[in-house]
């Protein structure tokens, strides 16, 4: 029986879908069977980030309404074995989601996959509630910035009040991913440090992702950053994936700013 993670943020644009894609690939690279489900109905993007937009024929609403079989709708990743995507509907909106059908879909996926990872829509409306309803644990993505952290806290509150596990008085584990950390700003006291964010939200840390120009390039080409061996953000996602697979990986310091040495600066003049 697999475990169900909902990836949530409250605020939009903090890197939820990027995180879903990278974590998914990372866990699949560890040899686990992973399915990613895009719950952002009407604003499908996970397919684009994974470079699979041309392969979407059937989506999750087709499956829930029995217009397509699950096998037909699941799209195999180009980059990684063991990784599958169930795309969001682009034509129907969140009103297409019905509680019992969502439950049935997730139960079926849990039987076949080790990790079922749900990419929640931004906001805290009904689409969000459907995503967190049957999650065993949530991964909360924030940027080190006040509005993102406040919205995340609100989203966490809804998980604790409304999810099925919470109603059964069971704990819903919450893990924090801090995305887009700018080390030089943190060092200068111009950006919230991870310790402060953890202190405010009081949930467990899962990983810290430094800001990386490569992320934009990665989404441009549909090849998530974790596939780039030289990227720091990619390495950070790899560590997160290993932690989610039960490995004990110490947290690296991505917040201290190391200014490039004079030699690297001179070298870069000649490149």
């Amino acid at each position: 029986m697999g475990i169900v993670y909902a990836i949530i943020s409250g605020k939009g644009g903090v890197g939820k879908t990027t995180t879903t894609a990278n974590i998914g690939i990372g866990i699949a690279q560890e040899g686990k069977k992973v399915v990613l489900v895009d719950f952002d109905l009407g604003q499908r993007n996970l397919d684009l980030i994974l470079g699979l937009e041309n392969r979407v024929i059937y989506d999750m609403v087709h499956v829930m309404d029995d217009e397509a079989g699950l096998k037909q709708a699941l799209i195999k990743s180009k980059h990684t074995e063991n990784l599958f995507l169930l795309a969001a509907s682009q034509t129907k909106d969140k009103s297409a989601l019905v509680q019992e059908k969502v439950k049935k879909l997730i139960d079926t996926l849990k039987e076949e996959y080790d990790y079922v990872i749900l990419d929640a829509p931004a906001g805290i409306e009904s689409g969000f509630e459907h995503t967190i309803m049957y999650a065993d644990a949530t991964i909360v993505v924030v940027n080190p910035e006040v509005s993102s952290i406040r919205d995340a806290d609100k989203a966490i509150g809804i998980v604790d009040a409304k999810s099925e596990r919470a109603k059964e008085n069971k704990k819903v584990k919450k893990f924090l991913v801090i995305n887009r950390i700018n080390p030089s700003m943190v060092s200068n006291g111009e950006m919230l440090a991870s310790a402060d964010i953890l202190d405010i939200l009081s949930i467990d840390l899962l990983g810290k992702i430094p800001e990386d120009k490569g992320i934009v390039e990665a989404s441009n080409s549909g090849k998530p950053i974790i596939l780039n061996e030289n990227s720091q953000a990619g390495a950070a996602y790899k560590r997160i994936a290993k932690r989610l697979c039960g490995e004990n990986i110490p947290f690296e310091d991505v917040e201290s700013f190391v200014s490039p040495s004079i030699i690297t600066k001179i070298k870069s003049l000649f490149q």
Binding site: V146, R150, K154, G157, V186, E190, L192, D196, I200
Partner: peptide
């Protein structure tokens, strides 16, 4: 430092939320 200001403001905003 603005990070310190952010922390204090967030603390108050979230506790009131």
């Amino acid at each position: 430092k603005s990070a310190g200001v952010a922390k204090d403001r967030l603390r108050i905003a979230i506790s009131s939320d």
